[in-house]
Structures are given as structure tokens and as C-alpha cells.
């Protein structure tokens, strides 16, 4: 079970509170910062351990992409037979070139119109893809909704979100009526969390 929207918001808030107890950011702004932090961690971790985000879905010809589709992962199969991804500009060859015809024993798939298309067209294919983190910044997302990020990334997302919140607070210093001391504190927190975040990223295994 990964962290929920309310939990990670609470953690980011707690980090902010520890440096700036009197400053209050509205929830939607914190959620946006959590979202950006998640995307930062996601793109970074895709480089290190893309298998964490690899998932599969079953698709018939013309099926929609899953809502959390980030991009395809170059793997698919039909009843155990490997299916390759091809660009749409290769469709014609696989349909009409007698030496390269797509068949159920040599299937392919492609994506256009943001839909899955299989070759041969009647085939249902199991496709491997990268899953995007749940959009926790969406106001319609319930507070008890869990993120799809691996649980071990919670701490680094928390640090990243706090770092982004401190940046937001510095940007909004005038609006939030921050005193000079509070501004200095926010600046110090930004630097500290920047270092913690970098250190945690360096520590990442794999």
C-alpha cells in the first residue's frame, strides 16, 4: 500500500511547519507541489529502475490506452508469442508485403489516435507499458486515494514536495506577509531540503 493523497499532503505540511509554523499554504497548492515532486521522482527513477513502473494491459484492436499510460515499453505478446511495436509508417509493409505479413504467429501493434491498433487487426494483445503516477493534484481525486508510486519512494517524494513548497513560499513571500526572519528561514529550508533531496537521490539503490 502506497501513500494516500491526504497522507503525503500531511507530510509535506509537517515539513513546512517545522521551519515556518505560522505559514499556511492552501491544500491545492500543496497538492500541485506533491504532483510535481512525484513527476520529478518518477522521471528520475525511470532511469534507474524502469521495471518498477512497468505494467501490462490487454488490448483488442482499437482499444483506448489505460488512463495511467505513460508510454509503451516495447514488449507485447499474444498467447506467449512476442509482438513488436511498430511505428505507423510500417503498417503498410506488415499488411501487404508477403515476406513480412503480420499473422497471429508474428503479430505487431502500433499506437495512433491515442488508441492501440493490432496487426493482424482481429488480435487481442498483452502490451507492456510504463505506468504514470496517479494524479493526486486533481481536485476530484479523493483524499484517501493511494498513489501508484512504489512505497519506498515516499520519503523522497515528501522531501521533493517540501522543497517545492518552500520555493512556492519564497515566491509568495509578499502575499503571505512573511517577516524578514521567516523569509530567511524559508531560504534556509529550501537549501537544506535541496541537499537532503539530492543526498537521498544519490543514496537510491539499483
Amino acid at each position: 500500500m502506497s501513500y494516500t493523497k491526504a497522507e503525503i499532503r500531511g507530510l509535506a505540511k509537517a515539513e513546512v511547519f517545522s521551519y515556518l509554523p505560522t505559514v499556511k499554504l492552501d491544500n491545492r497548492m500543496i497538492d500541485l507541489n506533491v504532483r510535481r515532486a512525484e513527476m520529478d521522482v518518477f522521471t528520475w527513477y525511470m532511469n534507474r529502475a524502469e521495471h518498477f513502473f512497468r505494467s501490462t494491459f490487454s488490448a483488442a484492436d482499437g482499444a483506448s490506452l489505460p488512463a495511467d499510460f505513460y508510454r509503451f515499453a516495447n514488449e507485447g505478446n499474444i498467447s506467449g508469442v512476442p509482438a513488436t511495436y511498430i511505428d505507423p509508417d510500417k503498417i503498410g509493409f506488415r499488411k501487404t508485403n508477403k515476406w513480412d505479413l503480420a499473422t497471429t504467429t508474428s503479430p505487431s501493434y502500433t499506437i495512433y489516435d491515442q488508441l492501440v491498433h493490432t496487426l493482424p487487426n482481429t488480435t487481442t494483445i498483452l502490451i507492456s507499458y510504463y505506468q504514470m503516477p496517479t494524479n493526486l493534484s486533481n481536485p476530484a481525486t479523493a483524499d484517501n486515494m493511494a498513489s501508484t508510486m512504489p512505497d519506498e519512494l515516499k520519503y523522497i517524494v515528501q522531501l521533493g514536495a517540501a522543497r517545492r513548497c518552500f520555493q512556492t513560499i519564497i515566491d509568495m513571500a509578499k502575499q503571505l506577509n512573511l517577516t524578514a526572519a521567516e523569509q530567511a528561514n524559508a531560504q534556509k529550508a529550501l537549501e537544506t531540503y535541496g541537499q537532503l533531496y539530492t543526498k537521498e537521490r544519490q543514496k537510491g539503490s539499483v
Partner: peptide
């Protein structure tokens, strides 16, 4: 333009 597919031709692009 990405590609043009012409299924009735000998080669379909």
C-alpha cells in the same frame, strides 16, 4: 506527415 498507407498497392505505403 508521418506516412501514407495505400492497401491496394503492391507495397502498402
Amino acid at each position: 506527415l508521418h506516412a501514407i498507407e495505400v492497401p491496394t498497392a503492391t507495397f502498402g505505403m
